[in-house]
């Protein structure tokens, strides 16, 4: 029987493909690489690598401990490299308008009840529930792809991360 090797990328070992143009503009494909973006990002900077109207995919370099954040809607964090723990907290008071979009930074740990912790490795996907607070921690350096809605901390640098020719 054929033995197959599944190739996942990492910060240490990734290889980019690309757009081969026949008759088009490469910018229309907004081609980037999550590991490449995270390798050049500040810890917990939320760099958009995908945008579909108000919705975004953010590449996050997980390194050390993040700030506490509150989200008005469910978000989903997929670990693509490293081991990342997620600490969840049920706030004592409403921290973010449920009708708003995108998570916000909090000033320190909010008052509330601990909900629990998830320790996630490559391929593990964690729900960050609506109305709750969370922070991430990584002992080394990891990469998280976040499914969310654009917010005040979403960083756009398409010209730096995307193939342009």
């Amino acid at each position: 029987m054929t033995q197959y090797t599944t190739v996942f990328g990492s910060l240490e070992d990734y290889s980019k493909g690309g757009v081969q143009i026949v008759d088009d503009d490469p910018k229309y494909y907004a081609f980037s690489n999550v590991f490449d973006v995270a390798s050049r990002a500040a810890p917990y900077e939320k760099v958009a690598v995908g945008k579909n109207l108000e919705y975004v995919l953010e590449a996050i370099r997980a390194e050390g401990t993040s700030e506490w954040r509150a989200t008005p809607h469910d978000e989903f964090a997929l670990v693509m490299d490293g081991t990342v723990s997620v600490e969840l907290l049920d706030p004592a008071v409403e921290l973010v308008d449920p009708a708003s979009s995108g998570s916000i930074t909090l000033e320190g740990r909010p008052d509330g009840s601990p909900m629990g912790t998830v320790t996630a490795q490559r391929g593990h996907m964690t729900m960050l529930p609506a109305g709750k607070a969370y922070r991430m921690h990584c002992d080394g350096v990891g990469v998280v792809l976040l499914q969310t809605i654009e917010g005040p901390d979403t960083v756009y640098r398409w010209g730096d991360i995307c193939q342009t020719f």
């Binding site: 990328g9 990734y14 980019k16 757009v19 143009i21 494909y29 081609f31």
Partner: peptide, 17 residues
């Protein structure tokens, strides 16, 4: 009419217009 070929490897992100 052909517009492009897109080669995607692990970690790559691309939009389809």
């Amino acid at each position: 009419a052909k517009r492009a070929r897109v080669i995607m490897k692990a970690g790559d992100v691309a939009a389809m217009p």
